[in-house]
Amino acid sequence: MSKFPRSRTVVLTFLVILSALLTGCSQRPSAEALESPAKEVSSAVRAASLAVDLRISDSTTAAAASTTADDMLGDVESATDHVHRLSAQTQEERVLRNDALAAFSSISRALLHARDALTSSSGGPNDGQGQTQLTTVQGELRVATEQLDSLMTKAGIQ
């Protein structure tokens, strides 16, 4: 047997194994598959919420709080990418994935507003406008958190 067909067989075997692995690894949007990204987003929104609380009470600086909001936005984006990659095959799976993406999108928006408010306001008890902005953003974060919590309960994620 010549060398060429042998190497082709090796390449083909490798490709077959790789495609089998990729097919096997392609996850579907079950509660189990959504658990990790949902928890990541839940943790991120709570951390940003705490940072805003601390900024409202003047316990942290604008730089530190906006860094937290920015970092958390990165976490939510990475979780969103993860959910986008899940391949829904049934109507139920599509609904679950879309609900998760909608909740993540609300949270991303709230985090963006939080970051902007934290960056623009000088903060502190004497900055009335900044305080109002931060309180509004805090409300937005709470609503988004509740939306995610109810989704997690509905999907059976602890």
Binding site: A47, L50, A51, D58, T60, T61, D71
Partner: peptide
């Protein structure tokens, strides 16, 4: 601070949150 709030650390900025909560900007 973080465990009861359901926050898992993924960044350095989160590590600073409990210290800011406890001691304010000076501690930070």
């Amino acid at each position: 601070v973080l465990l009861p709030a359901g926050i898992s650390v993924t960044s350095l900025s989160q590590v600073a949150l409990p210290v800011a909560q406890a001691g304010g900007q000076l501690a930070l």
